[in-house]
Write a protein that binds this DNA or RNA. Structure first.
Length: 226
DNA sequence: GCCAACGTTGGC
DNA sequence: GCCAACGTTGGC
């Protein structure tokens, strides 16, 4: 298994299906109640079977600059992912239910933006691919780990992670400030970034993008900075 | 380093 | 099941 990275709250997760799935937080349940039947928002997605839709593009945040949490540096930027064997790493350390649930929805082969957060210039740095679907995040049981969770038991793990592989850098870094201009513009007059989670759910570290959002953001790498 | 927004915890 | 207190995220 690849080394780990440091995702903050919403960072890294375990596997599918049965395990853990039943352990939903009060928040998740509340959310489910509010909305409809699933934890999946109705944002944009790709129908898989009748009545079910799911996302197929993602944004995952990590911090590219050194920051110490309990004496451990949580820095993990896209260059760090690229430097790993096979340019692949596990996205461990996610300790937020919504972020975890999104990771559990990820399918092998799907693409995600690598977003640099909590740094000088926050924004989209590059693209990675999901190469292994959700499985148990071992760091939840490691007392030495920054993201150790004493409340999670091995026979019913709470947290999951996926493996991601570096694909490429964006042709140019897309700063949050620029994305925000488009977001505001689109919110006023309509456009693909109108409801982008990056702005409407700012603190979520693993978030879905609709195909329209993903394509629009990607198209910006060929444009002049706004 | 500040602090607004928001997620989590725990008493009742 | 409500909600106040508390903790964390992450832009600025």
């Amino acid at each position: 298994m690849p080394p780990r990275k440091k995702a903050r709250v919403g960072k890294r997760t375990p596997k599918s299906g049965d395990e853990g799935e039943t352990a939903s937080s009060p928040k998740e349940r509340a959310g489910a109640k509010r909305k409809a039947a699933t934890s999946v928002d109705t944002g944009g997605k790709r129908p898989d079977s009748p009545g079910v839709s799911q996302y197929c593009h993602w944004l995952m945040k990590s911090e590219p600059e050194s920051r110490f949490e309990n004496g451990v540096d949580v820095k993990f930027g896209i260059e760090d992912l690229k430097a790993l064997p096979n340019q692949t790493g596990c996205w461990d350390g996610v300790r937020n239910y919504q972020a975890r649930n999104f990771m559990r929805q990820m399918k092998e082969g799907q693409l995600a933006f690598f977003y640099h957060s909590n740094c000088k210039e926050p924004g989209m740095a590059g693209i990675m691919k999901i190469v292994k679907e959700a499985y148990v995040d071992h760091t939840q049981f490691d007392k030495k780990d920054v993201h150790y969770d004493a409340s999670s038991k091995p026979d019913n793990p709470k947290w999951s992670m996926v493996d991601v592989q570096y694909q490429r850098m964006l042709k140019r870094f897309l700063p949050l400030s620029e994305l925000k201009k488009y977001h505001l513009q689109h919110r006023a007059k309509g456009g693909p970034l109108k409801d982008m989670a990056l702005f409407t759910r700012a603190r979520l570290s693993v978030q879905p993008l609709t195909a329209e959002e993903f394509d629009f953001v990607l198209s910006l790498e060929n444009k002049e900075p706004l």
